[in-house]
Computed example of a mutant assay.
Amino acid sequence: MKILIVEDEVKVARFLRRGLEGEGYAVDTAADGVTGEQKVRTNSFDLLILDVLLPHKNGFDVLRDLRTDGIVLPVLMLTARSSTEDIVSGLDSGADDYLTKPFSFDELLARVRSMLRRSASRTELRVADLVLDTVSRKAQRTGRTIELTTREYTLLEYFMRNEGKLVNRQQLARDVWGYDFDPGTNIVDVYVNHLRKKIDAGFPSRLLHTERGQGYVLEHRPGVK
């Protein structure tokens, strides 16, 4: 599970990062609203911990813009302000939960675990600007619908659920095609190439990468076109 912490107080950010990494979560941080929003838009996170009072762009505005653009990851807002008005503003902006400073790490951890459990059954997968709806079985990138065959959909869902992980041909043959052995054909490579053309061709950045002699990785790599 990957968590992004957007917090400008260095000590608080370090405290949260150490604690969450100690619980086995992968953690990234940002110290201002603009950088945090950009990281959400170009990476895939399972949870966002978002402070309200941030440099350059406050947490309310960051969250409101993310929600307006259809980004649905769970968000826990942090603030030193405990007024009902502030809490309502956060929830109206699209926050899933709200925690007032100071708080104990155990309290934050309980909120994080609860939110991740609730989101485990989510029906939308997202890698950068690529979105897959697992109910309608439709894919979109930058708002453009991508037509997929049944096998291409299954392959894309597998890659998206394994974002950032290197998967080899044997794994794909087993998990996508149901083969318990090497089928002895290039069927995996053919389908991966077809899928790559559909999700990458004509878009500003490449998401499906080939690691020669090893396999494939679906992830956003800044600067790779």
Rank of each mutant, 00 (worst) to 15 (best):
K2R: 15
I5R: 02
E7Y: 01
D8W: 15
K11W: 12
V12I: 14
A13L: 06
R14C: 00
L20A: 14
E21A: 14
G22W: 12
G24F: 03
Y25I: 05
Y25V: 01
A26T: 12
T29G: 07
G33P: 01
G33D: 00
E37D: 10
Q38S: 14
F45P: 05
I49E: 09
V52K: 13
V52A: 02
L54R: 04
P55G: 12
H56S: 11
H56P: 00
L73C: 02
P74Y: 00
L78T: 02
S83P: 11
S83H: 07
S83C: 06
T84E: 10
E85T: 10
G90N: 07
L91D: 04
S93L: 04
D96E: 10
Y98E: 04
F105P: 01
L108D: 11
R113L: 11
S114W: 02
S121G: 13
T123A: 05
V127D: 00
L132Q: 04
S136N: 07
G143T: 14
T145S: 11
R151Y: 03
L156D: 00
M160H: 08
K165C: 03
L166A: 02
R169Q: 08
V176A: 03
W177G: 00
W177F: 15
D180F: 03
N186Q: 09
L195F: 06
K197P: 02
G202I: 10
R206H: 07
L207C: 10
L207E: 04
H209D: 00
T210I: 14
E211L: 15
Q214I: 08
L218F: 08
L218I: 06
L218P: 07
L218A: 09
H220F: 06
P222N: 13
P222K: 11
